[in-house]
Design a protein around this nucleic acid. Structure first.
Lengths: 163, 163
DNA sequence: TGCAAATTTATGTACATACATTTAATGTTG
DNA sequence: CAACATTAAATGTATGTACATAAATTTGCA
């Protein structure tokens, strides 16, 4: 369904403004669907992502600093997400012996098992991108990368400078 | 910069998984930049969006139900966003005389002036899409619309059914 | 009319985000 | 070594999201 119909706004200033709205709306749509699915396993999306980072380290521990470095959203509060996972016995927290400022965080067997259950459920594949061809997925990746162009100074602009 | 480098993950299962991560990451990147800019005007993104809907209605009032209908995120809590705008004297709330269950919400002159100040600042145009050509913006819109295909039953899939 | 159902908004709770501040441990330097 | 800076994590506060529930009003129908 076209974004115009989804949000009942028949016209946009231009394709650029429409693209912004469409990005925010589509990502929200996608995350809502994923969050709903994860809820049946008692996890939120950030909790799931932290759990996967911890499995990537397993059997080595991770520190909060490492989690922040690997997280998609750097500004979120890893400490409190780990709190929730610890309450559910999916991770453990122990003071790092080598540096008592740091905390070693490890995924538990229960955590590993939960990840496997979720991944075996096929939940992760139902995310909307299955409606794209492989070439379209590549195009989408290229366009998104281009949006995040850093504009230190005058990178090639395609919008008229007057508005 | 490629998403692989942004999040320091050299490989993905496939272009589909990469596209999902890229969507979430790029939208977060975009919203963080926009939110930071709006903060200099004392507004959050949801507050700004509500304010624009109210201007669209002006001088007629809107109800909370209308705001929810027009909002990008239907499940967020319009009541409390209006609370914040009311505290800042950017909107008014009065019980609707015709239906005392409903509440008439109106943008104030200060609210209209703030919107104009923000829009005149050119803040809204610096959102990343200026690095796309008009044709690329159109492509992006088409791809995003395709992701939100409703799969009542077997819409055309492009991923192998086995995994 | 009278009472149940529906509607409209507000409130409560759990979690997350964004950012400032605090606490504790470690490094550094005079 | 003592004073100060730096680092790592936790905590505090304001806001927003997601969802359940409450409160007030209106509607509809027996």
């Amino acid at each position: 369904m076209r974004i115009e119909d989804e949000i009942k706004q028949p016209t946009f200033r231009d394709e650029y403004q429409k693209a912004i709205i469409n990005l925010v709306y589509t990502t929200g749509w996608l995350q809502l669907r994923q969050a709903t699915a994860f809820k049946t396993f008692g996890l939120t999306l950030p909790q799931f992502n932290i759990l996967r980072i911890l499995r990537g380290q397993h059997p080595l521990p991770a520190t909060v600093a490492l989690l922040i470095d690997r997280m998609l959203d750097k500004t979120s509060n890893a400490s409190r997400i780990v709190d929730r996972l610890e309450e559910k016995k999916l991770v453990t927290r122990t003071v790092c012996p080598a540096n008592r400022r740091a905390v070693d965080i490890r995924i538990t067997p229960a955590g590993l098992e939960l990840l496997k259950t979720i991944e075996d459920s096929g939940l992760m594949e139902k995310n909307g991108t299955q409606f794209l061809t492989p070439d379209e997925a590549r195009q989408l990746n290229a366009l998104l990368d281009k949006i995040r162009t850093e504009d230190g100074d005058g990178a090639t602009l395609h919008q008229p400078s007057c508005e």
